Computed example of a mutant assay.
Amino acid sequence: MSKLTWKKTAALVMAVTMLTTAAAGCGNNASSSASSEESSTSSTVESSESSAEESSAASATEEETDEMAAKNVADLIDAIYVQERNDNTDEECKAAKEAWDALTDAQKELVEGDNADPDYFGRDTGDAAKDDPRNEDEIGENELLVVSFGTSFNDSRVKDIKGIEDALQEAYPDWSVRRAFTAQIIINHVQARDDEKIDNMQQALDRAVANGVKNLVVQPTHLMHGAEYDEMNELLDRYKDKFEGIAVAEPLLGEVGDDATVINADMEAVAKAITAEAVKTAGYDDVAAAAEDGTAFVFMGHGTAHVAKVSYSQMQTTME
């Protein structure tokens, strides 16, 4: 082989070798790049999934926190929605309101219990500052105690109960008019929401004794005889030796007879009026038409269940 031919052959072999090496190098770089991209994509997906999981967990935790906060308030409300006062009532009323005030608007909407709901603290019933709980001391010897079931609606309490008390004070300026509610549930509601403290019957009587009251006149605002009126008298019997004299007024509609055949004029007038309205509302011409159709009208007020011992035939005879 001539020197020229050898040189050409050597150059060709060297060129092929270089090309092969370069190709191999490019192949390795491409593979490495693809692997790197796959690894980067995989990390991005895993990161997104992790963020989504964390976000979902945070959302679930926030929802659970809201529900727990709302349940705590509901439990506190249910604890004071009771008819018996205890040694911790004042603290329990305060705790319920403070817990409610600490809730967000969204959490307040979640409050739900046996007797609790957002309206317990959230409903606007008027300005409690316009009311007068009439629980002052320095009563004097003569007290006129006005006893009502009570209401947590501030505007109604000012117009109705306070209106009666104010009228009595004006009519009897020499007597100290004081207030008592028989519904502890109402007393607790007003105290917790508005920080207005109203005496229950026992508190009012203890206040009268402590103030040296000699003559006690009790004026109920009850419409008629019922459980509330009877319970009031039972408590007064336990205090009869604490005063020189106790006088108790009848409910608005007067005394109750020994049986259903004894009906006073006031009760008869009211019974006929509400029955006529009920018959009219039900679409009958009169009570006889309702009776013929097999319809009976039963009127039950709060706390009057135990005095409603009258058959339909007796009621119909009375109304006709």
Rank of each mutant, 00 (worst) to 15 (best):
A11S: 06
V13S: 15
V13E: 15
T17R: 03
T20M: 13
G25N: 07
G25E: 02
G27M: 10
A30F: 06
S31V: 09
S32V: 14
S35W: 05
T41K: 05
T41S: 05
T41M: 02
S42A: 13
S47Y: 02
S48V: 14
S50P: 08
S59M: 14
E63M: 12
E67N: 14
A69E: 00
K71H: 04
L76H: 08
L76Q: 05
I80R: 03
N86H: 11
D87P: 04
T89W: 07
D90N: 14
E91Q: 12
K97D: 05
D105S: 08
D105F: 07
K108F: 00
K108M: 07
G113E: 10
N115R: 06
A116H: 00
P118L: 03
P118Q: 01
D119F: 09
D119I: 11
Y120C: 05
Y120D: 06
F121Y: 10
D127C: 09
K130S: 09
D132A: 12
D137E: 13
E138D: 15
E138I: 11
I139W: 01
V147F: 00
T151R: 13
N154H: 12
D155V: 07
I161C: 03
K162M: 13
G163A: 04
L168W: 08
E170P: 10
E170N: 12
E170K: 11
F181K: 01
A192I: 06
E196T: 08
E196A: 14
M201C: 05
D206N: 10
N211A: 11
G226N: 00
D230H: 02
E231A: 03
E234G: 15
K242S: 12
K242Y: 02
E244I: 12
A247Q: 12
A247M: 12
A247D: 15
L253R: 01
G254Q: 03
V262M: 15
A265E: 11
A269L: 13
G283T: 09
Y284I: 05
Y284T: 06
D286Q: 10
V287C: 06
A288T: 14
A291L: 11
T295Q: 05
T295R: 08
A296F: 03
F297E: 01
F299W: 07
M300C: 10
T304L: 02
A305W: 02
S311Q: 11
S313L: 09
Q316T: 15
T317D: 15
M319Y: 14
